[in-house]
Nucleic acid binder design. Sequence first.
DNA 1: AGCGACCGTTCGACATTGTCGAATCCCGTC
DNA 2: GACGGGATTCGACAATGTCGAACGGTCGCT
Lengths: 252, 252
Amino acid sequence: MPGPIQAIERAAAVLQLLARGRLGLGEIAASLDLPKGTTHGILRTLRTVGFVEQDRASGTYRLGAALLRLGTGYLDANELRSRAINWADALAARSGEAVRIGMHLDGTVLVVHHVFRPDDTPQMLDVGALLPLHATALGKVLLAYDATVAGPLAQRRLASFTRRTVIAPAELARALGEVRARGWASEAEEYLPGEAAIAAPIRGRGGLVVGAIGVSGAVDRVLETSLRPRTGLVAQVSDAARAVSRDLEDTG
Amino acid sequence: MPGPIQAIERAAAVLQLLARGRLGLGEIAASLDLPKGTTHGILRTLRTVGFVEQDRASGTYRLGAALLRLGTGYLDANELRSRAINWADALAARSGEAVRIGMHLDGTVLVVHHVFRPDDTPQMLDVGALLPLHATALGKVLLAYDATVAGPLAQRRLASFTRRTVIAPAELARALGEVRARGWASEAEEYLPGEAAIAAPIRGRGGLVVGAIGVSGAVDRVLETSLRPRTGLVAQVSDAARAVSRDLEDTG
DNA sequence: AGCGACCGTTCGACATTGTCGAATCCCGTC
DNA sequence: GACGGGATTCGACAATGTCGAACGGTCGCT
């Protein structure tokens, strides 16, 4: 019976839809092109298992609390993350900047770990966030080393976030070639104004790139006055990436 | 057709199982008492939608990255959390302790928000974690004010975490009465050695308790020398809880 | 090396199961 | 009090998922 189970596929589609905000039954049914009755049955089931909740007053549906457990369950099971946590802490301490670990998910960068910059300033935790591949240092690393990531992206029109975002395919390809040559990627105000980042590839068994680790922070702390990434930071990031890779290749 | 959809219920059960660690097909099929063929079909579908991943070598299954997106999607949609974030930051800054916000989920406390203690020490983020109801300040608040939470718990045998954990039903009932009388709950080394906590209820529309907010930290910072919670901290926590409650009742 | 046991995967027939669209109910609004 | 939009229920149909046995690969043991 090598065919996906229809009901489960549809339920998953409903959840993916709801991930972007609360919706009414009608909207969901219309988006998925399903009869309302069918959609309601799916929703009712997802509610009994705690994957969606329903607003008593408006009747609209939203994601449920049980999903949070599953999300953190994924993080616990994620090998890349668990191996990288200790090195990420060390990198944050040594560099004084925020550290992020990302992997490819469906044309974006999924942040699987985030260590705050070691100071008292309030910061948003963005584990679980999706970042653009072409406008972040983490994403460029993934693009540069994984053809299965880069291929589909070439078809899409790239979004521009700041004046510096590289959206021209030729220019991006050149930048990715540079990443491969140097072994690390950087980004300066291409995603968020005033922020720059450096990232390096994490390799799993067989040398395949399975993720990326990098630091990000204010432009004047991450870059030299020449606007090139600080050499010391680049070395720290590369060392951390190599350390994680060694961990991954050896064990598990 | 008011009956849950079988296939989806089963898929959800598979996910809940996998939340506790990676498993093989046989183990999953046995745990759920399903034929291997059926289980495999469910797993295959969950894999195509990214909810589970499979280890190439061992063949074992684990949760997939797409679930992380859904988990954070839940957090974004969660009204209690979004209203409480600002007040939680303020409470952490004023009290100098870590702040947590919890709600009831399925006989436990689900941590939906966590602000680190404002200093440089490395701390584990535990958004998504499940804490025991009877051994934490957050949980005692939920138990004290919500009969639908307290009822089922009376049936279960309570787990003991430290020497101080209260597991005798009578003693716990007395403590909950005290919580109701004072309007806040506390806990000293009942869950983690060396840690104490204070929490207060968050009320939604209609005055129902929908969650709890509280601080936790080293015993000697949270408690007076008399072992009673520091009066100033109790006031700060209660004020924060009231502020969040006002936010929730007014809008949405 | 060869054998055996285990585990994930595939297959096809069966009937259980989910699907569908119309009809109903409920609520807020005019 | 009637209208409208939404969620919800219903029952017949057949498409759909289920089941258990058989396949094929891999690891561990002899």
